[in-house]
Nucleic acid binder design. Structure first.
Length: 889
RNA sequence: GGGCGGGUAGCUCAGUUGGGAGAGCAUCGGCCUUACAAGCCGAGGGUCACAGGUUCAAGCCCUGUUCCGCCUACCA
């Protein structure tokens, strides 16, 4: 990689892996420890160990990487902590599937052996996702990689659990929870996904004792009736105020159950009578608690009916539904079946229909924690960006319910609680106890449940930095600067980190939370395996290169809108990367063996001053955009600068100079400018496209080491207005306007580019004429002219095509080849356009309200604009008249 | 049921205190001009969803309507 010439096209495959190795070898991702610098830190949203890289990760990682690389270029200490999440249920499912394929079962193995198997699985496959993050270019400090089941993080989990228990914020009790009969575990409310399913509403008659009359109740889940312990009506329901029965017969079970009155019951629904099954419905459970009803659990944890279901024992819950309906029908108690589509909860991991079920679980009482987490956002200690998400955050936090944290699986952090088998004492402690503190019995049974995976992820921002030890890392880098994540885990994760961070660190876990878009498919649908519309990021990288892919994600990462991904778009940005490659190639050809690049301001041409001014402008734009998480603005500003300013104008204008046509001194100066602009542009682009910029940095003469160590961002570019050269920008505009006018005529009149032209311009303003004169060489070269004449307005040249640009009439002589009719048509079209532009301006100027109330500078601008348009119109009109008269003669 | 976001060129989308409607892709015409045909030059194309309102001035602010998407909720 030492040659100073570049291949004709950019080939990402050839260089990406080796640059990544280079960065790692040089420890360029290692967290800085310099004194006196800003400290910037991010913790990665840990992907599941079971995971494979998807578009969401790709976007998430790219944005974090951009910020980290950007901050490093600004000379800050940067810590980006990587790691993975043990993903309890998901991982257990994967390993169980693997066992099943081998004809084995976790119950055959037993708990310890099974957990060993999972660790082995993790050793073997857990690094896959990490390697994929590296493919994206993630500049994490890999020496600090963490796993939620690591020893240190496990200690943090224990400590948090014990403390919360001692503070009374963790409790255990019998409550209705969401039960997944397939995963065989409780789920938190958040872990249930609702989906509208076709279903029926069954109307069932519960008879009064010794009567053929009764109450008709309606239910979507008839099998739960076996566990009914009451029928409820609204106390204000007039139909039932005089009811003479206190009890009713539960059909099929022939059990007498009370008729109770509870305001929860809606009088309008059905017959106004509600069957109450406290063990299998959250609302019924609350009613049951209020009325001290017994709980009868008829559906077991395996989804089969229990002994309490009488003759239905052992049936699967859905089989039982059929059997119950058949039995009711036979007894003439099934009154009506109505179609009733309704929401049914599914396990977010395995999509099985969840069953509300009564069981003993551990809960976190989150209200007090949520309160502080709300305050932190209200006070602005933590800022959520885009701000629109704060409303969502508040809404959830205000309505938060206790968090069920116990899971009946084997893979995860085992709850540090023991029960004394002799006296029933519950012991919660960091160190495994050997005897009961109450009765000294040694018969202690350890809690078999593990904790919700999100319990450990909630500690991630500080547990990864070594908490509960008070490490240097924590002191330097906590709280983190920003958390970057998708809105889908705002509640699961962000909110919980906020609560835990504030409670245990006494400080918010992050200054900013940046919520990014979801990546969808071309049609805006969520990508999912079952839909088959998943685009594999690794395949995209393979085909187009990581840089092109990253640029695409960045350019489309506008705040508040989802990203629709298609390969065609990536292709467009591959062209951009290639364009960059080629402009570097062009520059390198001219640099040859030169080793030094310097220029003095006196030797600069207009285009040199202009491009330096534009460079400063784009640098300021990029800084401003990245500082405010407007990634797409940074990407598009750089795109425009590189392609449409640097390549389209500066390089083209500089060619004669670079080829030595204007003397050695000028040539050296322009080379110096080109070198500096290229160098600085690479640095500005590096956060977005790290690979190609590193490659080009090394090819570029007079650069040292890695581009990651470049300092131009903090001491090389003047980002203030002083960095601009407005005189150069204005003059350049005149030059490019004139050239565009000429090109327009070429295009419209189908004049071959090879044909050189004779052009006369007329301008009223002497300064304009002078400026044009000074830069006539540029105009002649780029406009491909044979002659260029500058005049004050006077007689218009005959047989020419005309273009009117700001304050200048451009006449392209077309002696002998002009088609007058065509030219008149063209000019009239132009005249029509101008008339369209004048109209709204004139309207404003005729409006006293506007003149009186609009700010003076706005009025002035409109007046000026109007004036130039009128002038343009007059010249065009005169030109048309003249050609018409020529045509006649 | 409640809440939020969106509707701008054929397509995908920008448009930051209200003050001249933009980009990329696609389309059409012309070019192998010594970095790049993954390129260069030029052109066409929009009642900014609809209806009102505020204002001298509205894509942008307010009200209503409509369509799409998402989140959330205990009507059995």
């Amino acid at each position: 990689m030492s040659s100073n010439s570049l291949d004709q096209g950019y080939d990402p495959q050839r260089i990406e892996d080796s640059w990544y190795e280079f960065w790692e070898k040089e420890h360029l991702f290692a967290a800085g420890t310099e004194d006196g610098c800003n400290n910037y830190s991010i913790v990665i949203p840990p992907p599941n160990v079971t995971g494979v890289l998807h578009m969401g990760h790709a976007l998430n990682i790219t944005l974090q990487d951009i910020l980290c690389r950007y901050k490093r270029l600004q000379g800050e200490n940067v810590l980006w902590v990587p790691g993975t999440d043990h993903a309890g249920i998901a991982t257990q499912n994967v390993v169980e599937k693997k066992l099943a394929a081998e004809g084995r079962d976790r119950h055959d193995l037993g708990r310890d052996k099974f957990v060993e198997e999972v660790w082995e699985w993790r050793e073997e496959y857990g690094s896959a996702i990490i390697n994929q993050l590296k493919k994206i270019g993630a500049s994490c400090d890999w020496s600090r990689e963490r796993f939620t089941m690591d020893e240190g993080l496990s200690k943090a989990v224990k400590k948090v659990f014990v403390q919360l228990y001692e503070e009374g914020l963790i409790y255990r009790g019998d409550y209705i929870i969401n039960w997944c009969p397939r995963c065989h575990t409780a789920l938190a409310d958040l872990e249930v996904e609702y989906e509208e399913l076709e279903g029926n509403l069954y109307h069932i008659k519960y008879p009064f004792e010794g009567s053929s009359d009764g109450l008709i109740v309606a239910t979507t889940r008839p099998e739960t009736m076996l566990g009914d312990t009451a029928v409820a009506v609204n106390p204000d329901d007039e139909r039932y105020t005089d009811l003479k029965f206190e009890e009713i017969i539960l059909p099929l079970m022939n059990r007498k159950i009370p008729i109770i009155r509870d305001a929860y019951v809606e009088t309008e629904f059905g017959t106004g009578a509600l069957k109450v099954t406290p063990a299998h419905d959250p609302n019924d459970f609350e009613i049951g608690t209020r009325h001290k009803l017994p709980n009868i659990k008829v559906i077991g944890d395996d989804g089969k009916m229990t002994a309490a279901a009488g003759r239905f024992e052992g049936l699967d819950r859905f089989e039982c539904r059929k059997a119950v309906l058949k039995a009711l029908e036979e007894e003439g108690l099934l009154i009506k079946i109505e179609s009733n589509p309704h929401n049914v909860g599914h396990c977010y991991r395995c999509k099985t229909v969840v069953e509300p079920n009564l069981s003993k679980q551990w809960f976190v009482s989150v209200k007090p924690l949520a309160k502080k987490a709300i305050e932190a956002v209200e006070s602005g200690k933590t800022k959520i960006i885009p701000e629109i998400w704060t409303a969502n955050y508040y809404d959830w936090m205000y309505n938060i319910r206790d968090w069920c944290i116990s899971r009946q699986i084997w893979w995860g952090h085992r709850i540090p609680a023991w029960t004394c088998e002799d006296c029933g004492e519950v012991i919660v402690t960091m160190e495994d106890p050997d005897k009961c503190p109450a009765c000294s019995s040694e018969k202690l049974a350890r809690e078999t449940d593990v904790l919700d995976t999100w319990f450990s992820s909630a500690l991630w921002p500080f547990s990864t930095m070594g908490w509960p030890e008070n490490t240097d890392l924590l002191k330097q880098y906590y709280p983190t600067s920003v958390l970057i994540t998708g809105f889908d885990i705002l509640f699961f994760w962000v909110a919980r980190m906020m609560m835990m961070g504030i409670h245990f660190m006494d400080e918010v876990p992050f200054d900013d939370v940046y919520i990014h878009a979801l990546v969808r498919d071309e049609e805006g649908k969520k990508m999912s395996k079952s839909k088959g519309n998943v685009i594999d990021p690794l395949k995209v990288i393979d085909e187009y290169g990581t840089d092109a892919f990253r640029y695409t994600l960045t350019a489309f990462a506008a705040q508040g809108r989802d990203i629709k991904m298609s390969e065609q778009r990536v292709e467009g940005y591959r062209h951009f990367v290639n364009k960059l490659w080629n402009v570097a190639r062009f520059a390198m050809m001219h640099f040859g063996d030169s080793k030094e690049f310097s220029f003095s301001k006196e030797n600069l041409e207009l285009s040199d001053r202009w491009i330096l001014s534009r460079l400063n402008h784009v640098a300021a734009t990029v800084k401003d955009a990245l500082d405010t998480y407007r990634f797409n603005d940074a990407a598009s500003a750089l795109y425009k600068f590189v392609w449409h300013e640097l390549c389209d104008w500066y390089v083209e204008i500089s060619k004669p100079t670079l080829y030595g046509k204007k003397g050695e001194e000028r040539q050296k100066a322009t080379m110096g400018v080109l070198w500096q602009v290229l160098r600085d542009t690479l640095v500005l682009l590096h956060p977005i496209i790290p690979f190609v910029t590193e490659e080009l940095w090394h090819k570029l003469p007079d650069t040292e080491g890695s581009i990651m160590k470049a300092s131009i961002f903090h001491d090389g570019i003047d980002l203030s207005e002083n960095g601009r050269d407005m005189a150069a920008e204005n003059d350049m505009k005149l030059v490019t306007d004139i050239i565009s006018g000429i090109r327009n005529i070429r295009g419209e009149m189908n004049i071959a580019p090879s044909m050189v032209l004779n052009v006369i311009i007329q301008a009223e303003d002497e300064m304009v004429r002078d400026t044009a004169k000074i830069h006539e060489d540029i105009i002649m070269e780029i406009g491909r002219l044979e002659s260029f004449t500058i005049e004050a307005p006077g007689d218009q040249p005959t047989a020419s095509a005309t273009a009117i640009v700001e304050g200048v009439s451009v006449f392209v002589s077309l002696e002998g080849i002009i088609d007058f009719a065509e030219e008149i048509k063209r000019l009239e079209k132009e005249l029509g356009k101008i008339a369209g532009e004048i109209m709204p301006l004139a309207k404003k100027l005729n409006n006293d309200g506007f003149l009186g109330k609009a700010p003076a500078d706005v009025v002035e601008k409109v007046k000026e604009k109007h004036q130039t348009m009128i002038e343009k119109q007059e010249i065009l009109g005169a030109t048309i008249e003249r050609i018409k008269s020529l045509e006649k003669s």
